[in-house]
C-alpha cells in the first residue's frame, strides 16, 4: 500500500490585500522525512507554516495534513501536530515544569502521563536541574530546546518548527539539530523553516521559496547537481540573484 504523505499541498494561495504571500504552492512531504523550507525573510515561509498548522486560513488551494483537510477538520489536524513558533512562546513568569504541565494539559494528556514524561525528557536533554527555574532566568539556547520539547511533548507524528535556531550560537544550533535528528529517527516527520543555508544540508529534502513561489524542490544533492553548485547556499544565491535588490 502507498503511504499517505504527511503533508499534501495543492495550489495554495494566500493573499493579504493585493500582496500575494504564497503563490500556488504545490508540494508533498513524506512521512518520516526532515523537510526544509528555505527562503529569505519575507519569502512566505511563516505564512505557509501557519496555514499548514491551521492558524491562518488560505485564500485558496487544498491543504491535507496527516490525511485531514485543514480547512474542514482543523481540530483533528491539531491533535497530530506539534508547532514551535518563530516568536518565543513559553511563559516567562512560569518555571520550566509549569510551562510543560500547562501545554501538556491543554493537549489533553493525563497527569500520570505528564509526570512520567517530564522527568524522562528533561533528563534525556540533560536539563533536569533547571526544572524549577523561571523561563526568564535561563539562557536562550536552552529556551529554544524547551520550546521544542513543549512542541513534541504530546508525541505528535508531525512537528512544524518555524526558524527554531534563529538567534542562537553555532554550537547551540548544532545541538538543536541533534534533537531534530533524534526525533526523526523515531519515524516522525519534521517540517522546518530556516534561513541558515548550512542547516539545509541536514534536511532530507528542501524547498526554496522566493517571493511566495517555489523556486526549487528536491534533495540537497539533486539541487546542487541541477544548479551546478557546491552547496545549497550557492543554489539559494543563484535563485535569489535576479531579485537581489528586492530583498
Amino acid at each position: 500500500m502507498t503511504k499517505e504523505p504527511a503533508i499534501r499541498v495543492r495550489d495554495l494561495v494566500k493573499k493579504f490585500g493585493s500582496f500575494t504571500a504564497n503563490d500556488k504552492l504545490t508540494f508533498e512531504v513524506h512521512q518520516g522525512e526532515i523537510f526544509g523550507f528555505l527562503g529569505a525573510n519575507g519569502a512566505g515561509k511563516t505564512t505557509a507554516i501557519k496555514i499548514l498548522c491551521g492558524l491562518t486560513a488560505p485564500t485558496s488551494g487544498e491543504v491535507y495534513v496527516t490525511g485531514c483537510n485543514v480547512a474542514i477538520q482543523p481540530e483533528k489536524v491539531k491533535k497530530n501536530i506539534g508547532y514551535m513558533s518563530q516568536r518565543f512562546s513559553l511563559y516567562d513568569d512560569m518555571t520550566v515544569a509549569e510551562n510543560i504541565w500547562f501545554y501538556a494539559g491543554i493537549y489533553g494528556m493525563d497527569r500520570q502521563q505528564i509526570r512520567g514524561r517530564i522527568s524522562q525528557l528533561l533528563s534525556e536533554m540533560g536539563i533536569s536541574h533547571i526544572r524549577n527555574t523561571l523561563i526568564r532566568d535561563i539562557p536562550i539556547g536552552w529556551k529554544q530546546k524547551l520550546a521544542f520539547l513543549v512542541a513534541v511533548f504530546h508525541d505528535p507524528p508531525l512537528v512544524f518548527l518555524d526558524e527554531p535556531t534563529a538567534g542562537v550560537d553555532p554550537l547551540a544550533r548544532r545541538q538543536f539539530w541533534e534533537l531534530i535528528y533524534q526525533y526523526a529517527a523515531r519515524g516522525k516527520t519534521v517540517f522546518v523553516t530556516t534561513h541558515y543555508m548550512d542547516e539545509a544540508e541536514y534536511c532530507d529534502r528542501v524547498c526554496i521559496l522566493s517571493e511566495g513561489r517555489i523556486a526549487a524542490l528536491g534533495t540537497p544533492n539533486e539541487l546542487k547537481k541541477l544548479w551546478n553548485a557546491r552547496s545549497v547556499e550557492d543554489v539559494f544565491l543563484r535563485i535569489a540573484r535576479p531579485n537581489h535588490n528586492k530583498n
Binding site: 491539531k78 508547532y83 513558533s85 513543549v150
Partner: peptide, 8 residues
C-alpha cells in the same frame, strides 16, 4: 498561537 495550535 501556541494555544491556538492545540486541539483545545
Amino acid at each position: 498561537e501556541q494555544i491556538n495550535v492545540t486541539p483545545i
